[in-house]
Simulated scan of single mutants.
Amino acid sequence: MFFGLTIEKLLVIGVIAALLIGPERLPRYAETLAHLTTRTRDFLRNAKTRVQDEMGEEFEDVDWRTLDPRRYDPRRIIREALLDDAPVPTVRAASAGAAIEATGTPPPPPGAIRGFAPNETPPFDGEAT
């Protein structure tokens, strides 16, 4: 099967194309199709060779079946992600925990707008544009 087309369907499409194109132009179109098919096959063969040359010995180690999108199963991916170990706390999370312990209130989230007291002057950078 070729992209879901069977031989019978391809034969019907070929007969309809032959009737629409006509017997005068059919040999020229068939020759063009054969030339295009040959060029496409050569291009794909050269692309495979280039990929093998670029990847080197690692190309033989790749399991291409695992990269097949038809094998994508979101349930399996989620299950594996949930079974992984818990993420390691980052430095930012550790420092936020220390700030909560010291002051009793959590620090504002990054990018939060901080209010100023009525007599407090906001910072100003004269070199900023």
Results as ranks from 00 to 15, higher is better:
residue 1 M to S: 10
residue 7 I to P: 00
residue 10 L to S: 04
residue 10 L to Y: 03
residue 13 I to P: 00
residue 16 I to D: 12
residue 17 A to L: 14
residue 17 A to R: 05
residue 18 A to H: 01
residue 18 A to P: 00
residue 21 I to A: 01
residue 21 I to C: 01
residue 22 G to L: 02
residue 24 E to K: 08
residue 24 E to L: 12
residue 24 E to H: 04
residue 26 L to M: 11
residue 26 L to P: 00
residue 26 L to A: 03
residue 26 L to T: 01
residue 26 L to Y: 01
residue 27 P to L: 06
residue 28 R to M: 13
residue 31 E to R: 14
residue 34 A to W: 04
residue 45 R to N: 12
residue 45 R to E: 10
residue 45 R to V: 12
residue 46 N to R: 15
residue 47 A to N: 14
residue 52 Q to F: 10
residue 53 D to K: 08
residue 53 D to C: 03
residue 56 G to W: 02
residue 57 E to Q: 12
residue 60 E to N: 13
residue 61 D to T: 14
residue 65 R to V: 11
residue 68 D to G: 02
residue 69 P to H: 05
residue 70 R to H: 08
residue 70 R to W: 06
residue 72 Y to D: 03
residue 73 D to E: 14
residue 73 D to N: 15
residue 73 D to P: 01
residue 74 P to W: 01
residue 76 R to F: 09
residue 77 I to N: 03
residue 81 A to K: 09
residue 82 L to G: 05
residue 84 D to T: 14
residue 85 D to V: 02
residue 86 A to G: 05
residue 86 A to F: 05
residue 87 P to F: 01
residue 88 V to A: 12
residue 94 A to D: 13
residue 94 A to W: 07
residue 95 S to A: 06
residue 96 A to R: 00
residue 96 A to Y: 00
residue 99 A to L: 14
residue 101 E to G: 03
residue 102 A to D: 15
residue 103 T to F: 10
residue 103 T to K: 05
residue 105 T to R: 14
residue 110 P to K: 06
residue 111 G to I: 02
residue 111 G to S: 08
residue 112 A to G: 05
residue 112 A to F: 03
residue 114 R to C: 14
residue 117 A to F: 09
residue 120 E to I: 05
residue 120 E to V: 04
residue 125 D to M: 04
residue 125 D to V: 08
residue 127 E to Y: 13
residue 129 T to I: 11
